[in-house]
Design a protein around this nucleic acid. Structure first.
Length: 656
DNA sequence: CTAGGGTTAG
């Protein structure tokens, strides 16, 4: 039990006089647990053993908590059993220990034991029992616990209602969460934070922001936790104006030193297109953890700055921060999108040196690296040579690449394998359907579509966001719900006319021709990105920078359309610049507006009602990261595969 | 005194 030498200085060996008892020991253990200072905690435990105080209930309870926090529930349980007469705090500590470590069943079993032994459950017991860290698959249980809380009258307790709000949010049951929050008789800052974060992580970003505004109105002061969630919402939404306002608030309140806040700020700027701003913030960060590095590397990747991403990857190790799986994924993504095939392979090899296990996402990213660069055979060879069985992600990546490079034979191989593994995934069905129709095989394309319909599968609708002034507007394909709809379509007509005159040819290869009437109509609908761009051109002054953000990949036609427009620089036409630019992978384009239409410029449109309606299909996207539930399903993977055609589009843009 | 709710990267 060596290595807690620093401790001697505090209670120096030779210094007499200061005696400690079970109380001070328990207090120090608690602090050690909070700070995750395992060694200090263990040191205190040694002192306890030496002084014979370790048998004391308070001390043991503190240790139960400490070991639980460190993930060692077995030791915690052992210590719990040493407590002669455990009080309710001891029980709560052990129940919550199980729950925090994902051992939900054991937590429930112990809870039952507590009730059987005649013990009482108070609000803290409920809070500790709720599986907030591993809620997946436990909706029924949460409802039961909720019911128990109501019956025992503790549901009005702030901690209980906050914990319930959190757990329902993480189960994507946002209606339950909202109801609980609204009906809570008392709201703490934590309650507000739980609800805002719940909205953010379910993709209901505008709800998060509107709740934040309500908080401001009620003069509830936000703290760094609030700010972190709001920044995440801004990042998802591309709401850079609000993001900048929040940045000012951060400076005013001195929140910059909080690592969560500054990392979220970097992520927000990168995702909103201001990579330079993100970089400045990153460079001036006094302390960076692995998440900060990952955010910055991802940001570079998103902007097609592959070499910058790799430079950072190298610097990171030198700075003494070890990369993790996400770091490698971000670096591979950056290589893939910048066409750095050899570099990407090297990074992939490097993973074993760092002892990091390769997941399906890493393999798929490498398939994407080859596929995007047109090295389809190499991609197939790679899949065949994989040490683990290739899954839907890898075949999906290959299929996507085949679609872009129009390789029917390989696409067949990829899709055969894919459907064997993942016949439920909608994204791939759409991809396959498009391959068939691009080949003129409309009957097969229609059959695939039919299969999709039969299974009642649905795909997240394409949705484009644009910020004008301080409002974010949302467009879906064929949208006519906007008050300025007529002007938008007129603008599009005008642009199309000019472009055709200049020789623009729409990309129709991927369109479905021989399908049902209803679906044909679907194809005729104008994609949301064009609508958003037209809307932006109408509502901004000449020369204004407009950024659009899409939830899915920008289609080939829309990319070509934007690219073509960028060439048209004569007076009277909009001057456009593709922003991510070198790879387009961010589904983001920045447009410099030309001459706006007369009339409705700058009007306040008040479309917030239908905005939330339009975003409804995007909800329930699930909580990221925590809980270990893989979110790599159909559309997500498709989303990752995006923009393979962009590399080509940009190559031709460069050469022209 | 000992237990308990909210935060960043893919």
């Amino acid at each position: 039990m060596g290595g807690w030498g620093g401790f001697g200085g505090v209670w120096g060996d030779g210094e007499e006089g200061v005696r400690f008892d079970s109380t001070s020991l328990a207090a120090v253990i608690r602090v050690a647990g909070e700070l995750m200072e395992v060694r200090v905690g263990l040191g205190v435990q040694c002192m306890g053993i030496k002084s014979g105080l370790c048998g004391h209930g308070f001390v043991l309870t503190g240790l139960v908590s400490l070991y639980s926090k460190c993930g060692d529930v077995d030791t915690a349980r052992f210590l719990f059993e040493q407590i002669e007469r455990p009080d309710f705090v001891s029980w709560n500590a052990m129940i919550s220990g199980y729950s925090c470590n994902g051992e939900t069943e054991s937590a429930v079993r112990l809870f039952r034991e507590l009730l059987h032994s005649g013990g009482e459950a108070n609000s803290s017991t409920i809070v500790g029992l709720l599986p907030v860290f591993s809620p997946f698959g436990h909706l029924e249980l949460c409802r039961c616990i909720h019911g128990f809380a109501v019956k025992s009258g503790v549901d009005s307790n702030v901690s209980v209602s906050t914990a319930l709000t959190t757990v329902y949010s993480r189960l994507n049951e946002i209606e339950f969460a909202t109801q609980l929050f609204d009906e809570a008789p008392e709201k703490s800052l934590e309650s507000w934070n739980a609800m805002i974060s719940g909205y953010t992580q379910n993709g209901l970003t505008e709800m998060a922001i509107s709740l934040f505004r309500r908080m401001q109105t009620l003069k509830v002061q936000p703290n760094p936790v609030t700010i972190t969630s709001i920044l995440s919402a801004c990042a998802q939404l591309g709401a850079v104006t609000l993001g900048k306002w929040v940045h000012e608030l951060i400076v005013r309140e001195n929140f910059q030193s909080n690592i969560y806040v500054s990392t979220a700020l970097i992520d927000m700027y990168a995702k909103c297109g201001s990579i330079r701003e993100a970089q400045i913030l990153f460079d001036t960060m006094p302390e960076k953890n692995v998440v900060s590095w990952n955010a910055m590397i991802s940001g570079y990747g998103l902007h097609g700055l592959g070499h910058e991403a790799l430079r950072l990857f190298d610097e990171m190790s030198k700075a003494g921060v070890s990369p993790n799986g996400v770091t490698f994924l971000a670096a591979l993504y950056a290589c893939s999108h910048a066409g750095l095939v050899r570099e990407g392979e090297k990074i992939f090899q490097l993973m074993s040196d760092y002892g990091i296990t390769r997941g399906p996402e890493h393999y798929a990213c490498l398939v994407d690296l080859f596929g995007r660069a047109g090295k389809l055979e190499e991609a197939l060879e790679f899949i065949k040579g994989m040490p683990v069985e290739p899954g839907p992600a890898e075949w999906g990546a290959l299929l996507g690449a085949c679609m872009v490079h129009k390789n029917k034979a390989l696409a067949q191989i990829a899709s055969d394998n894919l459907f064997k593994l993942d016949s439920e995934s909608v994204g791939y069905h759409v991809l396959l359907s498009n391959i068939h129709s691009s080949d003129g095989n409309y009957r097969e394309a229609a059959m695939v579509r039919q299969a999709v319909k039969k299974r009642k599968m649905s795909k997240a609708p394409g949705c484009t966001l644009i910020e004008i002034g301080e409002t974010v507007y949302t467009f879906i394909s064929g949208d006519r719900s906007h008050p300025q709809s007529t002007a938008i379509y007129a603008m599009l007509e005008k642009l199309m006319g000019k472009m055709r005159e200049a020789g623009f040819q729409p990309e129709t290869d991927m369109a479905l021709h021989d399908v049902e009437e209803e679906e044909k109509e679907q194809m005729v609908k104008v994609h949301s990105e064009k609508l958003a761009i037209a809307f932006g051109l109408i509502n901004t002054k000449p020369g204004t920078e407009i950024t659009i953000i899409k939830n899915l990949r920008v289609c080939l036609d829309c990319h070509n359309w934007t690219k073509f427009m960028s060439k048209l620089t004569q007076t009277g036409m909009p001057v456009m610049k593709l922003v991510p630019t070198t790879d387009g992978s961010t589904n983001k384009a920045t447009v410099y507006a030309g001459v706006p239409e007369k009339g409705d410029t700058g009007k306040n449109l008040g479309v917030s009602e239908w905005l939330s309606e339009a975003l409804r299909p995007l909800k329930g996207k699930g909580r990221r990261g925590k809980g270990g539930l893989a979110q790599h399903q159909g559309t997500d993977v498709l989303h990752v595969k995006e923009a393979m055609d962009v590399a080509k589009a940009l190559a031709s843009l460069k050469s022209s």
